[in-house]
Design a protein around this nucleic acid. Structure first.
Lengths: 216, 216, 216, 216
DNA sequence: GATGAATGAGGATTCATTCAT
DNA sequence: CATGAATGAATCCTCATTCAT
């Protein structure tokens, strides 16, 4: 589920050589994309960086979108953010929330360049716009479920629609992640240190939902 | 202040005719941009839409960026969001916050297409990236000042760095605005009705900062 | 005689204001041509430099060639080189030759930029190519007549066709003038000092024709 | 040494087909340049003449300058003028001089169109202006060395600075070559026959330096 | 599978010249 | 006479994609 777009079940290379070439292209593509941006990346730059001929590209991909999809796919596992799926744990909800936020922000930071790239591509290619929307939506839904659960258990006291609240709060986190890790531009600091980030975001989130102290 | 980029003090047309042509071009540009997106907009489409010759475009603008800057400039007043600058009013802080959020979201909704466009252009043109960053920063700072004020007055009880909190909460609002008004994509509703939006966002914000009930 | 081309008897301005505008345009044109070169000079730069409207240009000139012709015409008097027309003077032929060369080189030096311009325009516009050829030819013929005269009088002993010799020797001088005063490029010295130039050129010329010492 | 400009070590085609196409483009370019002149030559005319697509041009050259450089390069060997480098031969200096002049003029005549083209391009493109200057300078220096040698050996009696004399006399020859072979313009003859040219130029040169009869 | 040359549609940009005011 | 906005033909150059070797 959540398949990367533009990947029409092209059979993976049969030969070992083929696999190597394809892998080289994907790696080169990621490098070139991160260096030049998606739009300014030329297919020939990618093949040049991969050390193979222009034509070889088309043995494995139909176009730029497809390589980008492959790059994304390759990074997916790492980008999978745990979310708040396990909020109804025996653990302290606040701690769970904090762990979730930390995991999300860490993953974002690790793949910051790629996330920035995805943002760029989404502005340009409808398929990736949809892809991004799907991912965001999954994240939002997971968090919405968590919120609803906390509300039911009386831990989140705020009387808000879980879905809308999740949209707002999940957005708050992802926005901050983008601003901090991608849009650094020049500043140098701009963003507080990582732990402060996690702590603040978690606190705001918990406050917003009016987390109640565990009653026991 | 907060000048739109790529606008190197090109003298405005001296003649009435010139002013009319220029205005026509800006209007046409906005239409074409909103219809085709920034990247797919052809200069000739703009002149065609404006009903003038290709060359006339270059009487007023050096390139696409410059017209886009002009489009932006023309929309600036309306996009000016009041912010929370007057939080320390005699009014109820919660009401002030709500008014501020409503104003922001209304302005965003009114200029949704343009905001989407700006997002797109920012991904492509560093000057507009900087411009967007400047605007966002101004918004964040204003809100940070408001938060600090509320903290001093004991109304906002949460022990958070005002700047970071503002970054997070301002981001929450703008992100939601973008998702709601620009990224509607397909779903018919997707977003709750406008008033619910305002109410929820305001509630989450106030909760996050632990607004205290007015003591009287 | 020796009319500058592209000057189709356009009536000079009737009004005083007109005369002033025209003069301003010619002066501005010379400045712009010398600064940007003929090809890169834009008509609008000229009008801008002259401080008048684009359209005004066409009140006095039909195109770039015509202004350039006017610029040339205005400089003609100064560029008129005395030549060797008076070689059969009572004066010492060597002294006459030297005076002639000095005069030519001085005139060239004074109008070096313009001469370079003319060279450039001649490469581009057939009319000015012809003009330059006419001027060169006149110079050559005058010198050829001088040479023939000296030969008849037994002063120039070399048995050469006067016309061909003049072509060679006149070319020698003008070439050196161009190389020295126009094509300096970078060197800094490149050319010996002016008097050495005159002396050497004169000596070579006299030697080439085997000037005989005055027999008396 | 004496590299043609604008040729940034673009690797020559790897394939035979590539070499053929490139060669075809260079040949076509020369034809078009000679037909239309450098400035009026359109890139598409060149590809059309070469029978290939517009884009193929850019596989081998970045722009007009680069093809022109290639055309020049291809003609270099033939344009290499022997000069007077071997004046201190056992041969009769006069004969050596004459041979040198003949060789120079023959090479010039063979490549007259190209020389004219170079003159034109030099007026327009600084890189080629420098190139022309370099070539001219090499020629001048070689001849200056020859003159100095003759002076030392007492053959050239004229008391002139060898460098300046070479500048003048080399210029005389090249100027005459240009006037004769390139600037023919209209006149049917204009220039005497080739042998007369060689003889006259040689005589004037030898006289100018006051060649002494071999003493034996 | 790999190679890399060939393709060519498509769009931005320039600037001399006109002409209504 | 002066003004300056409007015109639009004309070219350069890019680069994703194909295909013969």
């Amino acid at each position: 589920m959540d398949a990367v777009p533009a990947a029409p079940v092209r059979p993976l290379p049969a030969t070992v050589r083929g696999a190597r070439t394809r892998a080289g292209l994907v790696a080169a593509a990621r490098r070139v994309f991160e260096r030049d941006g998606y739009l300014d990346a030329k297919l020939t730059d990618i093949t040049k960086a991969a050390g193979c001929a222009t034509g070889s590209f088309y043995t494995y991909f139909a176009n730029k979108e497809e390589v980008f999809a492959a790059v994304l796919e390759q990074a997916q596992q790492d980008m999978m953010h745990p979310g708040m799926g396990r909020v109804n744990d025996s653990d302290d909800p606040y701690a769970v929330l904090e762990a979730s936020n930390r995991a999300y922000l860490e993953a974002y930071r690790r793949n910051a360049q790629l996330m920035g790239l995805l943002e760029q591509v989404a502005q340009v290619d409808p398929e990736f716009r949809a892809f991004r929307a799907r991912r965001a939506d999954a994240f939002v839904r997971r968090n919405a479920a968590g919120i609803a659960d906390l509300q039911e258990r009386g831990i989140a006291a705020a009387a808000v629609d879980p879905m809308l609240a999740s949209r707002a709060l999940s957005g708050m986190v992802s926005r901050l992640a983008y601003a901090t890790f991608v849009g650094q531009e020049s500043d140098g600091d701009g963003g507080a240190d990582f732990e402060t980030l996690v702590a603040t975001v978690t606190l705001l989130w918990a406050n917003a939902l009016q987390f109640q102290p565990p009653n026991n």
